[in-house]
Structures are given as C-alpha cells and as structure tokens.
Design a protein around this nucleic acid. Sequence first.
DNA 1: ATGGTAGCCTTGCTA
Length: 260
Amino acid sequence: MKIATWNVNSVKARLPHLLSWLESAKPDALCLQEIKCLADDFPSLEVKSLGYHVTAVGQKTYNGVAIISREKAEIVHTALPGDDTDTQARYLEADIAGVRIATIYLPNGNPVGTDKYPYKLAWMKRLADHARELLDEERTVVLAGDYNICPTDDDVYDPVGWREDALCRPESRAAFRIIANLGYVDAFRALHSEPGRYSFWDYQAGRWHRDEGLRIDHLMLNPQAADRLVACDIDRAPRAKEKASDHTPVWCEIGPPRLI
DNA sequence: ATGGTAGCCTTGCTA
C-alpha cells in the first residue's frame, strides 16, 4: 500500500499537477494539506474520474486537508481531539483498506512571540495525546502531513539562519521527538540517513534552484506500520514544474504483514 | 540590500 503526503498550497491552483501525479505515482492514499477551499468546492469530479475517492475537511481561504484514496475512506475524526473551540481545518483521520491514516496540517507557528507559537505547541501536545491513545488500539497507523517541523539540523539548508524560526526552535523539535518517542517512526529517516533531503523550498529568493529547502513533511508510522515499511522517498519532480506548490510529495510503501 | 513569491480574493493575511 503506497501512502503519500503533499501540501498542495491550494488544490484548485494545483489541480493539473495533482491529477498528473496521481496518474504517474499511483498512490493508494494521498493525504493533502492546504487545500485552501471549502470541502464542497474541492474539485472531486476530476479526481474521481481517475478512480479515486475524496474526503475533505475544508475552510475558506486558509488551511484545509483531504484524503484521496483508491478504497473508500471510513471517517473516524474530522478534527484533532482535545479542543472543541479550535475551528481551523487541520486534521482528518480515516480507515482506508485496514490502515488508520491521518492527514495533518500542523500550525506553522511564526512569528515566534505572537500567539501563533503557543497555538502550535498546544496543537502538538494534543497530537501527542491523541497519538498515544491510538497506540492502545494496536492498529496499523500512519500519521502523514505537513508537520511544519524540521526535526534536526540535517533537515535544513541553513541551520543557524533558521535557529529561531518556529519550524526549527528547540521547543518545536522537542514536541516532535515526544511523538517519535511514543513509538512513531519517521519513515524517511528509517530508510535514509543522508542530510540535505528536503520536502519544501520557499518560493522566494530562488530557494528551489539553489536546493535550499527544509524537510518538514513527514510520514510517522506506529510499530505495526513501521514493521511493514518497505520503501520511502521524496518525489522532487512536482516541485520542478511551472506553477508548483512550494512542497513536494513524500511517500512510503507499506508491505503485507510480516511474520518476523 | 529588511527585499523576495504565491494564493486567496483584498487593498492585507498567511506561509
């Protein structure tokens, strides 16, 4: 089962690239972030014409997440548990072909020093609490999305320049490690040790052409999923296109259950 | 050198 995550930065603006990637990469499930539209405005017909189902949690202009899947998704949560007053469309969790999959758009948190940063950290605490509860169910779980966390200095082109940014701050990284230390494996790092592999390049200052990016899009696998991990990679091709998103897809392949 | 780009759909916000 091929599971992918991609912050598309507007699903309407990215529809041609999205359809093209579905046709070439053939994921079984694709978690989207920043669809930037209401769920009713998602271009579902075009995606369905390729043989996929669509489930979306949207809002106008900002945020918004969705899951595109070969098999129909059975919705479990349309918001991250833990704060009923949080109305931002950043979380969707569903069962797809026997795998529990969440699409996550974690708050950016910048500028540090505004209420955006404590909101990010509180959101991460809720995510860790929920991830901990999910472990008790002993399912196969993949928490996929734009975490807006650069886990280590190996995952950013300029660690010193980004040190005080909400994506790299020690509190952000510590919150990410709490999720990892629960038993969720960063699928990319499980299979790749090399530094300088990025999933996001800012639109500004020619970052893509200089390969000056950050790795902030992650597939976090619980032990049942990690035991079945057979491949994981970042597909840079969509980022090289005209009118690209500033993020590119990250995918993993979960094989059949193994008997040791 | 305090810029630069993109998307939404306004004249600014978010990233």
